[in-house]
Design a protein around this nucleic acid. Structure first.
Length: 490
RNA sequence: CGGGGCGUAGCACAGCCUGGUAGUGCGCACGGUUUGGGACCGUGAGGCCGCAAGUUCGAAUCUUGCCGCCCCGACCA
């Protein structure tokens, strides 16, 4: 393993890839576009899962599990949905292999061809709504508030670790409601929940908004999203919440009897966040020394590194550390004492910085004698010496400070990289430089398309919270009622 | 699917032009000296040189075909 990482300023995507690999988060698998999520990376994902799952449960949702395979006939039913996903589906056509008579190895057994192909789910609306058909008869059966944690496959042409992989892990919520307002309320509630998670757990500020019709989820009536700004000035869609109207209820014939004894189609929502959030987390905070993790999602919040010359010294240091470890654990802080003897302290310092451990405690004989300990902050790379006596409190306070500080830093970055522009020259120039570009848009798909073709910028969202402000479309000069967020996106 | 790059030890690479049977660094094992920001010395283990065919006395090296991966675009969460 070499020493330094590539610099963000020199080669951002190489920096990103190297951080993912060298911090032990994930690696490429033998299958194109798929990744192995390694223990340290998966530990972060598990923390995200836990927090999100608690939030789902707290808002009345239950977990369930639906099959990996989608019959082709299901996927066909909703026309827009089918069209949106058709190009990126992995398809199972056979159920058996046999020994290859012409040589060694195995071949697909032509006699084992499936009657109907099975699609490996790119998303589960169809399978789930097919099930809901049998679950819903009366308004009393509603709402159904279900989430599932699963893997899905989308055969993307170009993949990047975490940000876009052919197979990814996610959660997908699928709810059914008796009324349109209730379904819309659910869609918005989940969007708020995602924003809450992004900001308070990931320390990543997001803009909540609506997608334009052309950026909508295939089959949705309305798509809400949270959009984050990465350090290279590109936007990342971090989560989506869809109001599906009655589209899926109609094609899967999911009807219920309302209080007035009339048959009605159920109203649907679906929403999801994926392991892409790992990519967002990495790009939101990390620096040229490696990962910077928010304390709330860090698998190891505090690492303790002993600095010693002899075995006897280590024994004495360990004695002191033992108490600190116990106290930290009692305070609910995850801590690792790294007394391994195969690396020296300097190596460990660099290693844990690479892994983004929020706080490092360094302790040597000098400290043991003086009753002090060195506290190093990952986000600021600052070090101070404090009395061992109050170290638990110091750590506790500092973890909270780091959580806040990296959020504030990311927020400041976003603010400094959000620009209002009012003419085409400024628009193209700013898109080229990066950042969120707030500009007027005439509301037509045609203009949106032309802007995309000329600048590669897309409308990330129409912000939910924004002042009405009359203006002229930056491209067509036509009237516009409010600014929308443009950016180049991942 | 277009454009570029690359497949040689666990990792990063050199060797290929000009064919002679594989090397450097990191890592790993053991021993020793070290230890407050990525230590050093010694010894050692580790290879079907992506796969297949061809040329040749002889192929990592030349030829042909295949396979795979990475990066940049188009597409997408």
């Amino acid at each position: 393993m070499g020493k330094g990482l590539p610099k963000r300023s020199e080669n951002y995507s190489e920096w990103y890839n190297e951080i993912v690999k060298r911090a032990g988060l994930a690696e490429n698998s033998p299958v194109r576009g798929c990744m192995v999520i390694k223990p340290y990376g998966f530990a972060i994902w598990e923390k995200m899962q836990r927090a999100l799952d608690d939030m789902f449960k707290a808002t009345g949702h239950e977990n369930a599990y639906f099959p990996l395979f989608v019959p082709r006939s299901f996927l066909e039913k909703e026309e827009e949905h089918a069209e949106g996903f058709a190009k990126e589906c992995a398809v199972v056509t056979h159920y058996r292999l046999k020994a290859d008579p012409d040589g060694k190895g195995l071949m697909v057994d032509p006699n084992a061809k499936l009657e109907e192909e099975l699609i490996i789910r790119p998303t589960s609306e169809t399978v789930i709504w097919n099930a809901y058909k049998n679950w819903i008869q009366s308004w009393r059966d509603l709402p159904i508030l279900i989430n599932q944690w699963a893997n899905v496959v989308r055969w993307e042409m170009r993949t990047r670790l975490f940000l876009r992989t052919a197979e990814f892990l996610w959660q997908e919520g699928h709810t059914a409601h008796a009324t349109e307002p209730e379904a819309i309320e659910e869609t918005e509630k989940i969007l708020g929940l995602y924003a809450d998670f992004a900001e308070n757990w990931m320390a990543m500020p997001v803009i909540q908004g609506l997608k334009t019709p052309s950026e909508r989820f295939a089959g949705a009536v309305e798509t809400y999203c949270i959009e984050a700004l990465m350090q290279d000035g590109r936007a990342l869609q971090a989560g989506t919440s869809h109001f599906l109207g009655q589209n899926f209820a109609k094609v899967f014939d999911v009807k219920f009897v309302n209080k007035e004894n009339q048959l009605e189609y159920a109203w649907a929502t679906s929403w999801g966040v994926s392991t892409r959030l790992m990519g967002a987390l990495i790009m939101a905070h990390s620096d040229d020394n490696g990962l910077v993790l928010p304390p709330k999602l860090a698998p190891i919040q505090v690492v303790i590194v002993p600095i010693y010359k002899s075995e006897e010294d280590l024994a004495k240091i360990s004695e002191t550390v033992e108490g600190i470890v116990a106290d930290l654990r009692n305070a609910g802080i995850s801590v690792k004492y790294d007394d391994s003897d195969n690396q020296r302290s300097g190596w460990k310092f660099a290693e844990y910085e690479l892994k983004g451990v929020p706080i490092r405690l360094g302790i040597g004989m000098r400290d043991v004698e003086n009753g002090t300990i060195e506290v190093a902050r990952r986000d600021t790379l600052t070090k101070t010496s404090v009395p061992i006596e109050g170290v638990i409190e110091t750590v506790n306070v500092m973890l909270e400070q780091i959580q806040q500080a990296i959020y504030q830093k990311a927020l400041r970055f976003r603010e400094e990289n959000t620009f209002s522009v009012d003419n085409w020259d400024d628009f193209t120039r700013q898109i080229e430089k990066g950042g969120f570009v707030m500009a007027h848009w005439d509301g037509t798909a045609d203009t949106e398309e032309k802007i995309k073709n000329e600048t590669k910028a897309t409308i990330r969202c129409i912000p939910l919270v924004s002042a009405d402000e009359a203006g002229k479309c930056v491209f067509s000069g036509k009237d516009s009622a409010r600014r929308v967020v443009f950016a180049r996106a991942y």
